[in-house]
Write a protein that binds this DNA or RNA. Structure first.
Length: 779
DNA sequence: AAAGAGTGTCATGCT
DNA sequence: GTAGCATGACACTCT
């Protein structure tokens, strides 16, 4: 018994929270009405007040659930059940239907409800210029985007109209269900209209793309810099459009390069990369490049015949929308130029591994950690003090006024960060998770954990972007919020308040119905706070006239009493159907004597009819009291404090049978009120739990969205650094005016803001050395 | 007629 | 020990 209580009070809440955290929507209503006895009982407990399935029946009929509620193994039983359900929930990721509805509303920019989409419209306009992507990949991207949405919706359990094809009956049914739910939330039907939605999908796509692009290239300098790059229409190479001095110019001023970096650095002037930043990397393999590709300082993105930045925008769109999903947007050229292991999601962002499954088994955590590995060349004092080995040339590129350079990057190895593997030779050796991550230093452990969690979510089939989109809806003021104020539970905010209020009403009735004794009784009732169901003075007046009549309950939404006052019933016609007559246990003699009016009274007309009606409204205890000629009302018997009650009994000469009946009436009456309070309390608990689950789900979605946004900004930052590295490295010229080979040289940032051009072999050594450090630290 | 909701009552444990 | 409360279980009525 104690364990059951414990589960109902503490375990219930914990379990619902657990369910919520693992993505299972705890719809209490569903469980209440569902035919899933185990789960229902775990949540609600084997309360017959809420389930008609009796526990012993369950034990007898249901396999695997044979346990008695009072079994000492109940703890183990519930624990096992809870763990089992958690494990089972791991293979799926369920998103609450309500959230899906919100997402659907959001996707309808002209929907009646979604008028509150603050950013979408703006984004569409502001990013319209970025939408002018007319590459051949566009179609692919669009179609894949659509596919992604469809899959997303399927994953979410929502019903999104397929891009092509007819709606099945199930779809229509689901749409109807969703619609009905969203009607309550303020959504219009048109949102779920298939043709309507199909008509608007283009707009939706634009919205999404625009929203994503709005996030990218936020830095003006970066965009300006990016747009200065041109692409050779034949080779697909990208090169600066406005290199000062042209090709034959000697080495680009490093200061200028750094200025470029500064202008686009997202960290601002005061920010610095951590000194132990490893390297930027996953997109940049490091080994030696094949002879013929020396000048291909190309990002893997800059492939094909398109404008590289159009492509890049498409990439950002794709990445933002599809996130970790595999895409075939890139042409085969990119595959040739750069291939990354599919296990690295971040590199996947840059080098789309074609045919990669949507839910590829990626591990962001692994990628980030492993990224800080081999191709990691660190500078720092350690690097600077390194002797130039093997006659390799360490070219100090620090200008004389390097102190004026306020580099925002810490000591980091930019070498080989952004160069395609093929440029450096054996891509298989270096590309992949082992590539250093230039921003790895930004990934503190907490972030890595976040990413790891994200990865988990991805593995569960949950697209982070879905969470983002869903959450955007939660944050919007579209009236779709799961406002708990509409919940019936809000009617009774707490046990104490409801109890006290009902006590006061009860006391008022008592005081009005009788003398000074009742007034004192009322005060004591309030103090006790135990009386949850009040009676009306009018009712009691009638009762006084009739004799011993039971108290009248308040018309509680949750706990309706059986014996309503007819006057109240007339005032509250919707309660007319309520009014059970529980006289089943009444002794036949008592019933007869109480209910059969005296023959003479039948002639007295309407007044007698009313009395007859009241007779039928009386409880069996009232009938008994009347039969036993108890000289006071049941209300007094039940509600008077003990002292006054005893005092009242002492005033009358009552037989033993009468006294026994009076005590039974008092006991039963109090127990009846207690039962009503108990049921009300139980219902309140359930409703509050439901609200808590909703809140938790909302929080969870918000956190997911924040996580996605964080990852997105990180990705954008990496892209910027990548492009900047290419830009700087591509402009460097040796004494003969020839560009440096990315297979032989690499850029490194020192902690003092200087930039070094070092041989790649040296950079690789430093990278490996730096790679061991974090590992040792982790040990 | 069956099912479910609502209610009252009893037994029991706890305070 | 008594009174009262809480609650599971059960029975019953009503819809």
């Amino acid at each position: 018994m104690l364990s059951l209580k414990k589960y109902l009070t503490e375990g219930l809440l914990q379990f619902t929270i657990l369910l919520s955290l693992i993505g299972v929507r705890v719809d209490v209503d569903t469980y209440l009405t569902s035919q899933l006895p185990p789960l229902r009982e775990i949540i609600l407990g084997p309360s017959s007040a809420y389930t008609q399935t009796q526990f012993h029946n369950l034990r007898n009929t249901l396999d695997g659930y044979g346990i008695h509620p009072k079994s000492i193994d109940l703890d183990n039983y519930f624990t096992a059940r809870r763990l089992l359900s958690q494990v089972r929930a791991l293979d799926r990721f369920q998103v609450p239907t309500t959230e899906v509805n919100a997402w659907l509303v959001h996707r309808d920019p002209e929907g009646s409800v979604s008028g509150s989409q603050p950013s979408s419209g703006l984004t569409l306009e502001s990013s319209s210029g970025l939408q002018d992507v007319t590459g051949p990949d566009n179609g692919v991207r669009e179609s894949e985007t659509e596919q992604g949405f469809s899959e997303d919706l399927e994953d979410l359990g929502a019903v999104a109209p397929p891009v092509s094809g007819d709606l099945t009956k199930e779809d229509i049914d689901l749409i109807d269900i969703l619609w009905r739910q969203d009607i309550d939330l303020g959504a219009g039907r048109e949102i779920f209209d298939y043709s309507h939605r199909q008509k608007e999908q283009d707009v939706d796509k634009d919205l999404c793309d625009g929203a994503e692009q709005d996030d990218t290239w936020s830095g003006e300098g970066a965009e300006a810099l990016a747009r200065n790059l041109l692409v050779d229409g034949e080779t697909g190479e990208s090169f600066p459009a406005q290199v000062p001095g042209g090709e034959d110019q000697t080495a680009l001023s490093l200061e200028e390069c750094l200025r470029l970096l500064e202008a686009t650095c997202p960290f601002g002037e005061n920010a610095e990369f951590p000194a132990d930043i490893s390297s930027i990397t996953e997109a940049v393999p490091s080994e030696s490049e094949p002879p013929g590709l020396q000048n291909h300082l190309l990002s893997p993105l800059l492939t094909g015949t398109e404008s590289p930045f159009d492509l890049e925008q498409q990439w950002q769109d794709l990445m933002s929308i599809m996130e970790m999903q595999a895409m075939e947007v890139n042409t085969s050229a990119s595959e040739i130029l750069y291939s990354a292991p599919p296990g690295d999601p971040l590199s996947t962002n840059y080098s789309l591994a074609p045919n990669t499954p949507i839910n590829q088994n990626v591990s962001l955590h692994q990628a980030s950690l492993g990224g800080c590995s081999q191709d990691f060349s660190l500078f720092s004092p350690e690097v600077e003090s390194l002797p130039v080995a093997g006659g390799s040339t360490l070219l100090p590129l620090v200008p004389s006024n390097s102190t004026s350079l306020n580099s925002t990057f810490g000591s980091t190895n930019l070498a080989g960060l952004f160069f395609p593997a093929q440029l450096n030779g054996s891509a298989n050796d270096t590309a992949g998770p082992e590539l250093p991550d230039p921003l790895g230093g930004l990934l503190d452990e907490a972030m890595l954990d976040e990413i790891s969690l994200m990865d988990l979510a991805i593995e569960e089939g949950f697209n982070p972007v879905q969470a983002s989109q869903l959450e955007e809806e939660f944050d919007s003021d579209s009236g779709l919020s799961l406002d708990s104020s509409h919940s019936p539970s809000s009617l009774s905010s707490s046990e104490g308040s409801s109890s006290s209020s009902s006590s006061s009403s009860s006391s008022s009735s008592s005081s009005s119905s009788s003398s000074s004794a009742s007034s004192s009784a009322s005060s004591s009732f309030s103090e006790e706070g135990a009386v949850g169901y009040s009676s009306d003075s009018e009712t009691l007046d009638l009762e006084e006239a009739e004799g011993a009549v039971g108290y009248q309950p308040e018309y509680s939404k949750f706990c309706r009493m059986s014996y309503q006052d007819p006057a109240q019933l007339s005032c509250l016609p919707y309660l007319e159907h309520v009014g059970h007559n529980h006289t089943y246990n009444m002794a036949p003699s008592a019933l007869d004597s109480a209910e059969l009016p005296a023959p003479g009274t039948l002639k007295k007309g309407s007044k007698e009819k009313q009395a007859d009606f009241l007779d039928k409204q009386m409880s069996r205890d009232e009938h008994r009291a009347r039969a036993m000629k108890i000289p006071f009302t049941n209300d007094k018997i039940i509600n008077l404090p003990v002292e006054e009650f005893n005092e009242l009994l002492s005033k009358y000469q009552l037989s033993e049978a009468q006294l026994s009946l009076i005590r039974d009436i008092r006991r039963r009456g109090k127990n009846k009120m207690a039962a009503q309070n108990c049921r009300k309390r139980k219902l309140d608990t359930i409703l509050n739990l439901e609200r808590d689950v909703e809140d938790l789900q909302r929080d969870k979605a918000r956190l997911l969205r924040e996580k996605v946004e964080f990852l997105r900004s990180l990705r954008q930052m990496k892209q910027k650094v990548q492009s900047l590295y290419q830009e700087v490295f591509g402009r460097l010229r040796d004494e003969n005016g020839r560009p440096y080979s990315p297979s032989q040289y690499a850029l490194q940032y020192a902690g003092d803001g200087s930039v070094l051009l070092i041989p790649r072999t040296l950079a690789d050594q430093q990278a490996r050395r730096q790679e061991r450090k974090p590992k040792d630290r982790r040990k």
